[in-house]
Amino acid sequence: MLRSEKRTHRLLRLYIPPDSGWRGTLSALSGFLACITVFCCEKGMPEFFTTLNSLIPQFFDKLLVIWEALPYILGGALVTAATIVGALGLGLILGIPMAVGQIYGPVPVRLFVRLYVWFFRGTPLLVLLFLFYFGLFQFIGLDVSAFVASCLVLGLTSAAYQSQIFRASISALPMGQMKAARALGMSDAQALRNVILPQALRLSIPGWSNEFSILLKDSALAYALGTPEIMARVNFVATRTYTHLPLYIVAAILYFIITLIGLYFLRALERRARIPGYNM
C-alpha cells in the first residue's frame, strides 16, 4: 500500500509543481485523462476492443451469450430462492417440534427423532433426492413435480439438521427457566411457548444462518431431478453454446449474491431479536 503510494507520487511529481497542493494534483490528473482520451481517439475504440477480443477468445460472443441467457438464468435464481424458502420453512416447522420432542417427549418420540436424524444425516442428499422422487413418491403414488419433490426432500433433510440446532439452544438455557415457568402454574406447553422457545430461537439464529447457507448450496443438487433452478439452466445454456467457464462463473456469482442477501437479512434479524444487555 505504502509502496504503491510512493510510486504514484514519484510519477506525479514530474507533472506537479512542488507545493501546488490538491488543486495542482487535480490538474495533473485531468492532464493524464486528456492524454488517454486523445490516445483512444487516434487509435480508435474498435481497435482497443478487437485487441481484447483476441486476447480472450471470443470474449464478446460469450458476453453476448451471458447477456441473452441472463433473464433465463435469473428465472432459475427465483426457482432456487423458492426452493430454499420452502425447504427452510418445512425444516423449521418440523425441526422445532422434533427438538422439543427429543428433549421433553416420551421415550418413543425421542427414539423416533433420533432415528429420523440418524437417517437424514447419514444419507447423501443426492441419494435421498433419487430415493424419494424416483422411488418413494412413485411407490406411494404421490405425483409431484420435480420442484415440489426437491423442496420436500431438502426440507425433510433440513428438519433433521435444524432440530439439532434448536435442541442445542434449548439445552443451553438454564434449567431454572423451565422450573420458574412451572412454578408459576404454567403447563409445559405454555412454558415452552412463552419462556423456552422465545429464548432458544434467539440463540438459534447464528446456527440457523449457517444452515441457510449450506442448504442454499445443496439446492444445486435439485438439478439432478430436473428442477429448473440456477444450476440446471446454466448447464443447459453452457452445453448448448460451449460457454462453460463464463456461465459457471455467473452461476457461482449468483449463489454468492443470494447467500449474501440471506445472511444480511439474518444478521438484521439477529440484531433486532437481541435481548438488551444479554450476551450468551
Binding site: P174, G176, Q177, K179, A181, L184, G185, P198
Partner: peptide, 19 residues
C-alpha cells in the same frame, strides 16, 4: 397447575425470564 398457582416459589438464582 392449580397447586402451583397457589404456591409461589422464589429461587436462589432468581430465574427471571431473560427475554
Amino acid at each position: 397447575c392449580r397447586l402451583r398457582q397457589d404456591v409461589g416459589m422464589i429461587f436462589q438464582d432468581f430465574n427471571l425470564f431473560d427475554h
